[in-house]
Amino acid sequence: MTTTDSGPTGPRSPEQRKREALERLVRDNDVWVATAAASGEPCLVPLAFWWDGEAVWLATRDTNPTGRNLIASGRVRLSFGHTRDVVLVHGTARMLTREELPVEVGDAFAAKDGWDPRKDHPSYVFFQVTPYLLQAWGTVAEMPTRTVMREGEWLV
């Protein structure tokens, strides 16, 4: 990845930020997952993930706050990277039990993350997160064009 400083070449183009965001989705191991309960109580946790090219796959227990919140609302925000090179995804989550999960998804998740939730505690379920908004920016100069996906469609 290139630097996000607005040095002599200025801010990155939206096309470059999309390309680098997709690289991050393939390369990173963990993501910050933000959900909220019906009462408004926020929950923020890091989780392992796998990107299949169209959706982000997460695994967590259906009994913990993140699992309960995702089941109840299906709404989630994912944050990749750090504050000077962030990829923020707003998405909808669909739960799949380990029995419903396609074998190839479970195998790819386990291969990438070195951990197979299917072999862990029975309360682990999977969530397929479909992005509907994706923003990528590193500096204030990139903020005006930070949205590179809207309503599930790439803008660049």
Rank of each mutant, 00 (worst) to 15 (best):
R94E: 14
E15I: 06
G138N: 05
R77A: 14
G74Q: 08
R27W: 01
N64C: 08
A59I: 11
H121C: 07
L101E: 08
T35P: 09
S79A: 15
E104T: 04
T83D: 14
V103P: 00
D113I: 14
A55K: 15
V156F: 15
N64H: 09
W115H: 07
A59Q: 06
R77V: 12
W32E: 04
W50V: 13
A34P: 02
E20D: 14
D120H: 10
W50C: 01
G74L: 11
P102I: 11
E99M: 01
E23L: 05
V26K: 09
A59Y: 05
V31C: 01
G40V: 02
A37C: 01
L101P: 05
M143H: 04
A141H: 03
P11H: 03
K18S: 00
L25W: 05
V105Q: 00
T147Y: 01
P131R: 08
R84F: 10
L25F: 14
D5G: 08
V87G: 05
E41S: 13
V76D: 06
T3Y: 02
Y132L: 03
W50K: 03
R68C: 02
R118H: 06
G106D: 02
R61T: 13
F49S: 01
V156M: 11
E100T: 03
L58F: 06
A48V: 05
L134P: 02
A141S: 03
R12H: 09
V89M: 07
A108R: 12
V33M: 04
T145W: 10
R118A: 09
L22D: 01
G91V: 11
N69I: 03
W154E: 02
F80Q: 00
V89T: 06
Q128H: 07
G106A: 02
I71Y: 07
N29E: 13
L133V: 14
S79Q: 13
L155N: 02
G67T: 13
C43N: 15
V129M: 10
T2Q: 12
T4N: 15
M143K: 13
T130M: 12
A48W: 15
Q16T: 15
P46R: 05
D52N: 10
E54M: 11
E54C: 07
M95H: 02
T3S: 14
L25D: 01
T92R: 15
G10Y: 03
S39N: 10
E104S: 05
V105C: 00
V103H: 10
D120E: 11
V31I: 09
R77F: 01
D5S: 13
M143E: 14
H82S: 06
D62R: 11
S13Y: 04
A36W: 08
Q128L: 10
S123K: 07
A108D: 08
V76E: 03
I71V: 15
L58W: 09
T66S: 15
D5Y: 10
A48G: 12
V86T: 12
R61F: 07
F109H: 00
P117T: 14
T139R: 14
H82W: 13
A34L: 06
